[in-house]
Write a protein that binds this DNA or RNA. Structure first.
Lengths: 141, 141
DNA sequence: GCCACAATTGACGTTTACGTAAACGTCAAA
DNA sequence: TTTGACGTTTACGTAAACGTCAATTGTGGC
């Protein structure tokens, strides 16, 4: 059941180049098995790649992403390490909340801008047909 | 009332280096006035810088940010341009929504991870005091 | 066994977003 | 007048994240 994929299959599935995937491995973010020289990606690797790409969409650097992924599996033994670990989690959380806030703000602004655009569009439509023709309904181009 | 700032004042206010600010100008994202050779930043420039930094926090490239900022002020005259404009807005919106979704997912995962950490922490505390000492309250280091 | 094609491994190139250093102007305080 | 503290331009350096190209090396299919 543990599907194993070649690099090109994985590449197509996530729309990233094989080069990128190999690069992530060089950077220690992926550790596929090998069949001879060939890389074989397990389902676990797929999940990791998904995490990497999600991190990228959020603008994180590969190092930050590596750090986050390590959180998923690391099992720090000592209390001090656990404390530090939790601190790191908190930092990430703060950062993500900030981003979420930035997104809300930007989305609101986009709404306003689009509204202005649509108004401007309507005005242009009206200008184009200044005659007594009735309601200028939506015109299909 | 239109406060005018020097580059170092602006730099301190937003915690970016003067170098970065000049770079944004080179890239066409800022257009401060000049008093002689010196740059003078108006309130409008401050707002722009704020937008730039917000874009950066969201992981956008300077080019994308420039594009977004242009949306705030551009006044496309033709209908076709307006249509294209609205398309661009929609694209950005889609991207931002995706990011927001990614953030929610990640935040949830962080919650789970932290919870596991805290459980592990409690276990460690218990292990350290296996005697009949009463409730192990919080210890200050 | 041979061929086409996929995969691998270097190695160098490229873009983005600044950092850093050099060399100089400016103005006010000591 | 010297000395900082800023500011400017020019230029080169750099780290990150791949792209690109070449040279090999398997490897499945006939």
């Amino acid at each position: 059941m543990t599907e194993s994929l070649s690099i090109s299959e994985l590449s197509r599935e996530f729309e990233v180049t094989p080069r990128a995937i190999r690069f992530y491995e060089d950077e220690g973010l992926l550790h596929p098995k090998r069949r001879g020289r060939q890389r074989v990606y397990s389902n676990r690797d797929r999940v990791r790649l998904k995490l990497i790409l999600r991190g990228k969409r959020l603008g994180f650097s590969l190092m930050e992403i590596a750090d986050m992924i390590s959180m998923y599996h690391s099992d720090p033994g000592e209390t001090a390490q656990l404390d530090y670990f939790i601190t790191r989690i908190d930092d990430r959380r703060r950062q993500l909340r900030q981003q979420r806030e930035d997104i809300e703000t930007t989305l609101n602004e986009l709404d306003i801008i689009e509204k202005q655009c649509r108004e401007r569009l309507e005005n242009l439509e009206v200008e184009k047909q200044p005659t007594h023709r009735e309601a200028s309904a939506s015109r299909l181009k």
